[in-house]
Computed example of a mutant assay.
Amino acid sequence: MQIQSLDPHSPAAMSLLAQSDAYMASLYPAESNHLTDPDALAQPQVRFIGVWLAEWLAACGAVIVKDDPDGPYGEIKRIFVQPQFRGRGLSKAVMQDLESHLKAQGIELVRLETGVHQPEALKLYETLGYDRRAPFGNYAEDPLSVFMEKRLSA
Rank of each mutant, 00 (worst) to 15 (best):
1 M>K: 03
2 Q>C: 07
3 I>K: 03
8 P>W: 10
9 H>W: 10
10 S>L: 10
11 P>T: 14
12 A>K: 10
14 M>Q: 15
15 S>T: 14
15 S>H: 14
16 L>R: 06
17 L>W: 08
18 A>N: 13
19 Q>P: 01
21 D>T: 08
22 A>Q: 15
23 Y>V: 05
24 M>Y: 05
24 M>T: 09
25 A>C: 09
26 S>T: 11
28 Y>D: 05
30 A>L: 11
35 L>V: 03
37 D>Y: 06
37 D>K: 11
39 D>C: 08
41 L>D: 09
43 Q>I: 00
43 Q>A: 15
45 Q>W: 00
45 Q>Y: 00
46 V>I: 11
46 V>C: 11
46 V>S: 07
46 V>T: 13
47 R>F: 01
50 G>N: 01
51 V>W: 00
51 V>K: 02
51 V>Y: 00
52 W>K: 02
54 A>G: 03
54 A>W: 01
55 E>A: 12
56 W>A: 11
57 L>D: 05
61 G>K: 02
61 G>H: 03
61 G>S: 05
62 A>Y: 03
64 I>P: 00
65 V>T: 12
66 K>V: 02
67 D>P: 00
68 D>V: 02
68 D>A: 09
68 D>I: 01
69 P>Q: 03
70 D>E: 14
72 P>H: 06
74 G>E: 06
74 G>I: 02
75 E>I: 02
76 I>Q: 02
76 I>W: 01
78 R>S: 13
79 I>L: 15
80 F>L: 03
82 Q>F: 01
82 Q>M: 01
83 P>I: 01
86 R>Y: 04
87 G>Q: 04
91 S>E: 13
93 A>F: 00
93 A>I: 00
93 A>Q: 15
94 V>I: 15
95 M>Y: 06
96 Q>N: 11
96 Q>W: 00
99 E>Q: 14
102 L>F: 09
102 L>I: 11
102 L>V: 12
103 K>P: 00
109 L>M: 15
110 V>I: 15
110 V>R: 08
110 V>G: 14
110 V>H: 13
113 E>V: 13
114 T>D: 08
116 V>D: 02
117 H>K: 15
117 H>S: 10
119 P>H: 13
122 L>S: 10
123 K>L: 10
124 L>R: 09
126 E>R: 15
128 L>D: 09
129 G>I: 07
131 D>I: 07
133 R>K: 11
135 P>N: 06
137 G>T: 04
138 N>G: 10
138 N>K: 09
139 Y>V: 11
140 A>K: 11
141 E>I: 04
141 E>D: 14
142 D>L: 06
142 D>P: 04
143 P>W: 04
144 L>P: 02
144 L>C: 07
145 S>G: 12
146 V>M: 10
146 V>Q: 12
146 V>K: 09
146 V>Y: 07
148 M>K: 07
148 M>V: 07
148 M>F: 05
149 E>V: 00
151 R>F: 00
152 L>V: 09
153 S>V: 11
154 A>E: 11
154 A>K: 10
